[in-house]
Design a protein around this nucleic acid. Structure first.
Length: 328
DNA sequence: AAATGTACCAACCGCTCGCGC
DNA sequence: TGCGCGAGCGGTTGGTACATT
């Protein structure tokens, strides 16, 4: 039996059972949350049965990973996240889960949706294929530098009003040979963007306290950061959840709103689970650099809201010129 | 106010991979 | 070695909210 045959067999087995589909109810969510809080995740098919859910294991897994997990991050994709998605996608393509590993709290589904609804839409507007070299160049030489500028300006205005507690330091060097930027956060994370080489990921990583970038090992100037551990926000990348902003769920079919106060007491208690149950969180916590920048760069400020100001009009002109000539 | 279009996103589907037997 | 199964990934769909005409 080939892979397709096996798959069909599995699906037929699922079809034979009287399994529920469609939107989840509050009751189902509670069952799933309660069960996982007690027993942990994994073995989704048996989990579904044991939890008394008339759902496929797949459905339970998806519901948990994409919606119910406490570290799921909601809200708009920030400028920093957009930049990271563009960069990582240019490197890995549609490897959504891999990209999601570098965006704490974001799911592969969310990133995929973002890409399809926003990025592909703009490729369509530019009348070019999202995988074409033209579109890739447009991203590389126009949108990504533009994003960096906006992150910087947002960061600068924020640090002006809260200089002492500034969580991110942005330094830009401009020279005849290279123009690059470095967004440095106070939790040892840094991200650089080289306008000429268009390479952010190559220099994206975690710094130790003594591991400052020097002129010898980088063309990018980086400000040393004092007491880098002070603002470290790991392990939970989603503080909003604990403050109750994210825990509210609406079930339209029941006209019911569920807040975090209605969740089981041990919803956030993973004491019964092993650390390796959350490898992604472990890794992501060390890459949680943009959490601190978010205070500076508004999440509602989108790259795609171009065309609303004189500056954006200039940007569109440049973009049109690029599209016509293929260069600047 | 109603009709239509658009954007968003949760959920599903098909497929593949990896592991244990 | 091949099979069965659980798990995960990427593509797609359908429902809903919001915007526009």
């Amino acid at each position: 039996m080939d892979e397709k045959g096996r798959s069909l067999k599995n699906n037929n087995m699922e079809d034979e059972m009287d399994l529920k589909r469609g939107p989840w109810t509050a009751e189902e969510d509670f069952k799933l949350i309660n069960y996982i809080a007690t027993h942990g995740e994994g073995r989704w098919n048996s989990l579904s049965r044991c939890a008394g859910l008339q759902r496929t294991g797949k459905s339970c897994r998806l519901r948990w990973l994409n919606y119910l997990r406490p570290d799921v991050r909601r809200g708009n994709i920030t400028l920093e996240e957009q930049l990271l998605i563009l960069e990582l996608h240019s490197r890995w393509g549609n490897r959504w889960s891999k990209i999601a590993q570098y965006l704490p709290g974001r799911t592969d589904n969310e990133i995929k949706n973002y890409w399809r609804t926003r990025v592909q839409k703009h490729a369509k507007q530019l009348k070019c294929d999202v995988n074409s070299q033209q579109f890739k160049d447009t991203m590389k030489y126009l949108w990504m530098p533009r994003l960096v500028e906006r992150i910087q300006s947002a960061s600068a205005s924020a640090s002006a009003s809260a200089s002492a507690s500034a969580a991110a330091t942005t330094t830009t060097t401009t020279g005849s040979a290279a123009t690059s930027s470095c967004i440095t956060t106070s939790n040892n994370q840094f991200m650089t963007y080289d306008y000429n080489n268009s390479s952010m990921g190559q220099q994206f990583g975690v710094m130790s306290n003594n591991d400052y970038i020097t002129p010898e090992n980088s063309s990018v100037a980086v400000s040393p950061v004092s007491d880098l551990t002070e603002y470290y926000s790991a392990p939970n990348p989603n503080p909003e959840y604990y403050s109750g902003q994210v825990g509210n769920s609406y079930y339209p079919d029941q006209n019911l709103v569920v807040g975090p106060e209605m969740l089981p007491e041990n919803y956030f208690d993973y004491s019964g689970l092993l650390e390796e149950d959350f490898p992604a969180m472990q890794e992501q916590s060390s890459l949680n650099w943009f959490e601190n920048i978010n205070g500076a760069a508004s999440s509602s400020d989108s790259l795609w809201n171009i065309g609303e100001s004189d500056e954006d009009f200039w940007f569109l002109q440049q973009q049109q010129q690029f599209n016509n000539n293929g260069n600047f």
